[in-house]
Simulated scan of single mutants.
Amino acid sequence: MKTRDLAYVALFAAIVAVLGLIPPIAVPLVPVPITAQTLGVMLAGSVLGAKRGGLALLLFLAVVAVGAPVLSGGNGGLGVFVGPTAGYLYSWPIAAFVIGLLTQLFWRRFNAAYSFLANVIGGIVVVYAIGIPFTSVYADVSLSASFVGSFSFIPGDLVKAFIAALVADGVRRSYPVIELPARQPAHH
Results as ranks from 00 to 15, higher is better:
Gly67Asn: 04
Gly67Ile: 07
Ala68Asn: 13
Ala68Tyr: 04
Ala68Ile: 10
Ala68Gln: 14
Pro69Lys: 13
Val70Ala: 11
Leu71His: 10
Leu71Ser: 01
Leu71Gln: 10
Gly73Glu: 03
Gly74Lys: 13
Asn75Ala: 15
Asn75Cys: 07
Leu78Met: 11
Gly79Asp: 13
Phe81Pro: 04
Phe81Val: 09
Val82Leu: 13
Gly83Tyr: 03
Thr85Lys: 07
Thr85Pro: 09
Thr85Leu: 07
Thr85Asn: 13
Ala86Leu: 10
Tyr88Asp: 02
Leu89His: 04
Ser91Asp: 02
Ser91Val: 01
Ala96Phe: 05
Ala96Thr: 07
Ala96Asn: 11
Phe97His: 07
Val98Ile: 14
Val98Ser: 03
Ile99Phe: 00
Gly100Gln: 05
Leu102Ser: 08
Gln104Lys: 12
Leu105Gly: 09
Leu105Val: 06
Leu105His: 14
Phe106Val: 09
Phe106Asn: 10
Trp107Tyr: 12
Trp107Met: 04
Arg108Gly: 07
Arg108Gln: 05
Arg108Asp: 11
Arg109Met: 03
Phe110His: 07
Phe110Ile: 00
Asn111Lys: 04
Ala112Trp: 11
Ala112Arg: 05
Ala112Cys: 06
Ala112Val: 05
Tyr114Leu: 12
Leu117Ser: 13
Ala118Thr: 00
Ala118Met: 04
Val120Leu: 12
Val120Ser: 10
Ile121Ala: 14
Val125Gln: 15
Val125Asp: 14
Val126Ala: 11
Val126Ile: 15
Val127Asn: 08
Tyr128Val: 05
Tyr128Ser: 13
Tyr128Ile: 08
Ala129Gly: 13
Ile130Leu: 14
Ile130Ser: 09
Gly131Ala: 09
Ile132Ser: 10
Ile132Cys: 05
Ile132Gln: 01
Phe134Pro: 00
Thr135Leu: 12
Thr135Val: 09
Thr135Gly: 12
Thr135His: 04
Ser136Glu: 05
Val137Cys: 00
Val137Tyr: 04
Ala139Leu: 01
Ala139Met: 02
Asp140Tyr: 14
Asp140Thr: 15
Val141Ala: 01
Ser142Ile: 04
Leu143Thr: 10
Leu143Phe: 15
Ser144Asn: 12
Ser144Met: 15
Ala145His: 12
Ser146Gln: 03
Phe147His: 10
Phe147Val: 11
Gly149Pro: 13
Gly149Ile: 02
Ser150Asn: 15
Ser150Leu: 03
Phe151Val: 13
Ser152Asp: 15
Ser152Asn: 13
Ser152Ile: 12
Phe153Ile: 02
Phe153Met: 08
Gly156Leu: 08
Gly156Ala: 08
Gly156Ser: 12
Leu158Ala: 07
Leu158Met: 07
Val159Phe: 10
Ala161Lys: 01
Ala161Val: 01
Ala161Asp: 02
Phe162Ala: 12
Ala165Trp: 01
Val167Glu: 00
Val167Lys: 10
Val167Gly: 04
Ala168Arg: 03
Ala168Asp: 03
Ala168Ile: 01
Asp169Thr: 09
Asp169Leu: 08
Asp169Phe: 03
Asp169Met: 02
Gly170Trp: 01
Arg172Thr: 05
Arg173Ser: 03
Ser174Ala: 14
Ser174Val: 08
Ser174Asn: 11
Pro176Asn: 06
Ile178Lys: 01
Glu179Ala: 13
Glu179Gln: 13
Leu180Glu: 05
Leu180Asn: 06
Pro181Asn: 12
Pro181Phe: 12
Pro181Gln: 08
